[in-house]
Simulated scan of single mutants.
Amino acid sequence: MQNSVSHIKYGRQSGLGANRRKWLEVVKHKYFYLMILPTVLFFLIFAYVPMYGVVLAFKDFNYMLGIMDSPWNNFQNFRDVLSDPNFKHAFNNTLLISFGRLIIEFPIPILLAILLNEMRFGRLKRIFQTVFTFPHFISWVVLSGIITNILNDQGVLNQILVLFGFEKNAILLHDGSFLALLFTSNIWKEAGWSSIIYLAAIAGINPELYEAAAIDGANRYQQMKAITWPVLRNTAAIMLILAVGGIMNGGFDQIFNLYNPAVYERADILDTFVYRSAFVDSTGFGYSTTVGLLKSAINCLLLFGANFVVKRVFKEEGLY
């Protein structure tokens, strides 16, 4: 009996000691915690607190009653969404555009980082890196206005074509050319910024490895293949997992600012469909919340699936 009591007391004391040590560590590193506090507050206020609104997907929302007091609708919103041909069309478009981004856009930052790393002149390398990174800081609102003024019917490009006797090219009005515009403009805008993380991984490589490889007779390509790429593989695998986990997003900012009714057939994705459902077609917040919930659930499944494939098939480190 005395032994059991002493064990309980010892357990409580050790638990209190562990808690005290944790708080001492927090106090010791208080400035680090203060640095991350704004980020934590941002996600708490704008990501976690609004999550209670997800219940709208399961309710027949009534403005007078509010979210919590509105009656449950027995999954009627899900039946409406899954039977809506417009939803199916937007879903297919999202998959097409997102997989296109994954195949066409994803490798570009990796190649750009490798090419920048292979440049011999450091000053020229920094200039190119600045030039490639700068477009990231131009918002899609501004950039879409520039693109539209260049490519529309009375834009600069068509004026030049007419001047030299060619026919006008309505790039913004054709499905195929519009998709090509989406991919190329996003590469131009984001490739330089996305390459920074790969350049950071390359910067961690010991330069002596390249020197040793050069002494052994390895050329630049062999050095890249044997030294640079093995370091980039794990970083690329993690970025691939994150890209697959966001495959249902499609790129709302870019498409919303560039598309028009003429290309709805190919450019309307789930995010633009949700926007129109909530603010244009007035299908109700319950309907649009249901679409958003389905999109998030699919992204979550894809994230876990991609992590599993990367770890089991490619034998790389995953997110967890």
Rank of each mutant, 00 (worst) to 15 (best):
V5L: 02
Y10P: 05
A18D: 03
R20V: 15
R21K: 04
R21T: 13
L24H: 11
V27W: 02
H29N: 09
H29W: 03
K30Y: 08
Y31M: 01
I36T: 15
F42V: 13
F43N: 03
I45W: 10
Y48T: 08
Y52V: 15
L56Y: 09
D60Y: 08
M64R: 12
D69K: 06
F75R: 00
F78S: 07
D80M: 02
S83D: 04
I103V: 15
I110M: 03
L111M: 11
A113V: 12
I114E: 01
F121Q: 14
F128C: 07
I138M: 12
L143K: 07
T148G: 08
I150V: 15
L151R: 07
L151T: 13
Q154D: 11
L157C: 08
E167Q: 14
I171N: 01
L172K: 01
L173Y: 13
H174E: 14
L181A: 12
E190P: 06
E190Q: 12
W193K: 10
S194I: 10
Y198K: 02
A200W: 05
A200D: 05
A200G: 14
A201K: 01
N206M: 10
A214L: 13
A214H: 12
A214Q: 14
A218D: 08
A226M: 05
V231G: 02
N234F: 03
I238F: 07
I241Q: 02
G245S: 08
M248S: 05
Q254N: 10
L258W: 12
A267P: 11
R276P: 05
L301Q: 02
L302P: 08
K311Q: 14
